[in-house]
Design a protein around this nucleic acid. Structure first.
Lengths: 182, 182
DNA sequence: AACTTTATTAAAAATTTATTTAACACAATT
DNA sequence: AATTGTGTTAAATAAATTTTTAATAAAGTT
């Protein structure tokens, strides 16, 4: 499998590419756009980058880098750094996967719990009205009750999700599941 | 199933729609296609459905339902049920969010850990070769060492992810984070 | 204050992805 | 064995999203 024509520098680039490819593929799977995914994976091996460096490194347009980097900032996987002497903005990738990926999930789960709980509360109010409504047949009332109970039961999941987020944010989860088990 | 134009029946449908909408939106966010997301959310309020019932309920084509239902089966959110007497296949939605969503994450995380660990191992071997290579300058060797160490450090995250999956699969996580906290 | 450099926004193009129509295959029933 | 009903695959269409080119705004320098 070894190519004698390749020098050590090229081998390093190849090795990096392997990891960059899989990291980007994973992020792609999570709904991050290809450009942003590739950008993060590339930045993972750099200490800091400007938009122009990103553009030349990935061979893409500057606006694409600009929007990608902002999305990565939104999910806390990239941070802006203040570099004096240069007018260009510089950005750094969060290299600690514990921090970057957990920030991602906490944001997702918090949003999910909030939105779904709101919808559930509203729907439950409607079901109660139906149950109270004298126009409702006993069949309809029974149906409304069933749905109400089903939603009530599902709340436990969202509460649990909120607890999970909290235990990740506080770091308490690492008392239960240590970071350096193996 | 007739279409009520007013009254309690309509209110029930409206209430269901509210929840269906947010569940579908959430799943959409997780990379599930709109058709599959809407289908699951609809099935969440039904005890069982055939492909034709899905088609009429969602107003979409049968192949779309067929592929959607299979994707939902892949992520364990829908199961086939054996209904004797009918030639049509019937499907049931997993209504327990603990089971359905956790199956989803375990599958994702397991895949992520496996793929990335494989890429990391390969890349690390390459970096070792570069370090051993007599053609490598001391600068290149230093670079390779840095990258090697960075990857080595990242392994802890993937091990932790595997541990998390295991604690979810075994149910041990619920000793730490009970399901009915609130 | 004008000029230069950099970043962002807007509109257009291109790519990708999802969905449908049409054809096929598979079972079950007659 | 032929027919009917059901589900799946393939090719084509439609829709959505991503990316780019071009224009604009913002910031810094002379």
């Amino acid at each position: 499998m070894s190519e004698p024509t390749e020098g050590p520098e090229l081998k390093i680039e190849d090795a990096k590419e392997k990891v960059i490819g899989t990291i980007a593929e994973t992020m792609d799977l999570y709904g991050v756009t290809p450009a942003a995914a590739n950008l993060y994976a590339t930045m993972y091996f750099e200490d800091q980058m400007t938009l122009d460096e990103m553009r030349t490194e990935l061979g893409m347009s500057k606006p694409s880098m600009s929007t990608s980097v902002r999305r990565l900032q939104d999910i806390k996987m990239v941070k802006k750094t203040f570099t004096r002497g240069s007018r260009k903005h510089t950005y750094v990738a969060e290299k600690n996967f514990f921090r970057s990926f957990m920030a991602f999930y906490c944001q997702m789960w918090e949003r999910e719990a909030k939105m779904n709980m709101e919808a559930i509360e509203e729907a439950q109010e409607d079901f109660i009205e139906v149950i109270k409504d004298s126009n409702s047949t006993s069949e309809i009332v029974a149906k409304a009750k069933t749905y109400y109970d089903q939603l009530e039961e599902s709340k436990a999941y969202y509460h649990w999700l909120e607890d999970l987020v909290e235990s990740i944010r506080s770091g308490k989860i690492f008392e239960f599941l240590p970071k350096d088990q193996k």
